[in-house]
Amino acid sequence: MKKKSQFKAYLPFATNVFQRLISYKANVIIFLFGEFMMLATSYYLWRAIYKSTSNTAINGFSLNEMIIYVLMSFLTSLMISVDISYDISKEVKDGSIAINLIKPISYEKRMMFQAFGNVMYNFVVIFILGFTSINIVFYKYIGSLSIANILLYIISTMLGILINFYFSYTFGLLSFKITNMWGLSQIMQSIVQLLSGALIPILFFPRIVQKLITFLPFSSTIYTPTMIYLGKLTGISLIKALSIQIIWIVILAVIAKLMWNTLVKKLTILGG
């Protein structure tokens, strides 16, 4: 009963974000066109790459699989993206966090619901259409669709959303201490790009680096779901990958709590 009323109390934060994002829809779609340019670049690049070798597969990927990988990892990265760290640093910067801390609501829960609104928006505006299209491409290229892989992909993506939320949240909490988050987020963005598999499948890295990357949280957000979708993670390695995702959710949630407890005491608020 208590759970339910709590849910009701926080739900407006989610719908608020959802409605705000929806009202910018036209601009978002043009921004997305910009991202499609990037996709087109990688599409032609990969085609040229496969033309330049006599092998039909590179690191176990055929050209068709690689194109699906590029599309799917791109869609997954759009699906899981949330603006939480930006929201937090903005609240710290303009001082509005002071008021939000006085209110009798949990900051973490509030952010979680804001992220939920964000994710729902991603789902409605981008994911439904994108996922359907990719499945059609997959069917055309491969000749069949695996319902099991699709379902596992969705589960794994949901775990990825949670990892990304906690990561974004803890990263955002850093703004309690650091005033310039912009430069830091640029650095983080490039690291995430490289290690999440958004740029290139992790299998392309040297073996020892691969081992390292699989144990970092980044590859659990995009690489794992995409590989599951492609049916490249099965049996033991599938269970292992999903377990790593769950472990990272727990670790990051604990780190978030610890960081909150130490940083909230030392928070310096500018202006307001």
């Binding site: 430069g183 650095i187 963005q189 490039s190 690291i191 790009q193």
Partner: peptide, 16 residues
């Protein structure tokens, strides 16, 4: 510090 962080950020993005 802002300047240096921003600079490192852009160097890293290009490095990827």
């Amino acid at each position: 510090a802002d300047f240096i962080l921003g600079l490192i950020g852009f160097i890293l993005i290009q490095l990827t």
